[in-house]
């Protein structure tokens, strides 16, 4: 099976504030396949966000190749949906208008835009909040809208950069379950960045474990547990333990 995203020996250098160099990524290779739910996990400075930014087309690798369907990634585009940590919604647009944004810039007629947006509003269960502004929504609702905004283009892959880091624990658990449901019903491919082991163990079919200074892939763990996963089960604890141990070896 050819890879949806193919990262080949990618390195990325940044300049620190004092003009010394830092390797955000050093010789990283990984493939993401269609239909996978991959979590990248690691402490800050491990390059997990840089990896997402390279796949998203926001930055270019210093060395190596980043390919999508065999073609080099050169710029951001609607074929890769992105959900950021927070504050990425357009505060001057309502939920509906945020979700419609990419259709609007593509010139899709208003009626069709509206129908498709309604569909996604239903998927995230926010039809009631369609005409509210982001400032009037809770953190969890905002991230639901952000997911719908990225999904309306039917992207090949959904890139999520610690999307639930800023919401409370109860809401986070709900959002995780909803995301899994969307992943399964829509057949999505997802790269999900997190620093939370439990989140990765609950969501991922594969976990990329990264280590900092320089940013590298330390281990890749396949998680074979069936969904929905039971956070209280011994099998879940075993996955958690395995990821946790990988950080300390």
């Amino acid at each position: 099976m050819s890879a949806l995203i193919d990262i080949q020996n990618v390195s990325k250098i940044y300049a620190s504030a004092d003009d010394s160099t830092a390797w955000a990524l050093q010789d990283v290779s990984v493939q993401l396949h269609k239909g996978e739910f991959v979590c990248a996990i690691g402490p800050s400075g491990c390059g997990k966000t840089t990896l997402l930014n390279i796949i998203g087309g926001f930055t270019q690798p210093t060395e190596g190749k980043a390919l999508q369907d065999g073609e080099p990634i050169t710029a951001p585009g609607p074929d890769r949906g992105v959900v950021f940590q927070e504050y990425a919604l357009f505060s001057w647009l309502t939920s509906r208008e945020n979700i419609e944004f990419s259709l609007r810039v593509k010139g899709v007629p208003k009626k069709e835009r509206r129908e498709r947006a309604e569909h996604y509003l239903d998927l995230i269960g926010l039809r009631r909040a369609a005409d509210r502004y982001p400032g009037e929504l809770s953190g969890g609702m905002r991230q639901r809208v952000a997911v719908a905004r990225a999904l309306i283009n039917e992207p090949e892959i959904l890139l999520m950069d610690e999307p639930f880091a800023a919401v409370d624990a109860m809401t986070r658990a709900t959002l995780q379950e909803e995301l899994l449901r969307l992943w399964q019903t829509l057949g999505l491919s997802i790269l999900f960045i997190t620093h939370n082991i439990e989140e990765a163990a609950f969501l991922a079919s594969r976990i990329i474990i990264m280590s900092p200074h320089p940013g590298r892939i330390k281990d890749i763990v396949s998680v074979d547990l069936p969904y929905p996963r039971d956070r209280g089960s011994p099998e879940f604890a075993a996955v958690y333990g395995r990821v946790d141990r990988a950080f300390h070896t």
Binding site: F58, A75, P76, G77, R80, F84, F101, K106
Partner: peptide, 10 residues
């Protein structure tokens, strides 16, 4: 993050 959102939304 708003500029990146705009770019990634086409």
């Amino acid at each position: 993050v708003l500029l990146r959102s705009a770019m990634s939304l086409g």
